[in-house]
Amino acid sequence: MPTLLATLPHATRRLLFTWAVLMGLTLVTMLSAQLGGDARLQALPLWSAGLLLLSTAFKAHQVLMTYLGLRDASSAWRGAFIGLVLLTLVLVASGYLLARLGS
């Protein structure tokens, strides 16, 4: 017997799958940022900060490609939008690392 998900159109299944990934990554981000207890008062370990930024980049990529439909646009536009997101995160990561090195 086909599951309810299997009866949905491919485009709808893709949306639901993307949504599930985005929700999961948000929860992973919150967990890796160690929001509870005394750990919240400490600087994040580098692996955790890296995971946080990588998951943010992937989430932004998914929203651009699937929610906004850039998947069907030309590669130049895909590159421009993804490049802008990556540039933003590189700026943030550089500032973050410089602040850590300076302290």
Binding site: V63, L68, V92
Partner: peptide
């Protein structure tokens, strides 16, 4: 979706990092 996208970037930068 653009509003979504901006918040996805804003949340870790302001609240978490």
């Amino acid at each position: 979706h653009m509003v979504d996208l901006i918040w996805i970037l804003l949340y870790p930068v302001i609240y978490l990092l």
